[in-house]
Nucleic acid binder design. Structure first.
Lengths: 76, 76
DNA sequence: ATGTGACTCCAAGTCCGTG
DNA sequence: TCACGGACTTGGAGTCACA
């Protein structure tokens, strides 16, 4: 049973909304494709660690912040 | 210039050592190949988020913990 | 017990479009 | 502005033999 990508996607969207950015402008910030951001927010893509870093950067946070929903062991 | 994978690798090794685990037994815990752990610790592999989760699980931590070296935006 | 290069395979990530 | 799809290229996943 793979852990879900949805909590991460929600955290991304939440943070993007808080910054008042569109998916398009965030994509531009991070150097990603606009459709990729869309997929991430809907939990359809499993980003690499390096891309998580770029994303956190564009969102002006840390990956620790973005992933704190998964805090602690065995958060399935 | 991509951010380095080395700090992550060091955090993994540090945590593994703290638990007194071999790469082999950690690999077994996580369901990974032994050589994959080796590559991760040396910063030769860029793991996916889901694999980061499995890894944090096997190390009985959170990904937030493993990535706190990258805390804050623009930690190149 | 670990480092390493090379290999295959398929998901990641891009680019084109639509409603 | 966003969800969603098809087709395409890049790169991570997973494994092996060997040092």
């Amino acid at each position: 049973m793979p852990k879900s990508l949805l909590p991460l996607g929600r955290a991304i969207k939440q943070r993007r909304d808080a910054l008042g950015l569109s998916q398009e402008s965030l994509a531009e910030q991070c150097g990603f494709d606009r459709t990729y951001i869309s997929m991430l927010e809907r939990g359809r893509r499993n980003p690499s660690f390096l891309n998580l870093l770029r994303l956190a950067d564009g969102l002006k946070t840390s990956v620790a912040q973005l992933t704190e929903v998964y805090d602690g062991p065995s958060t399935d």
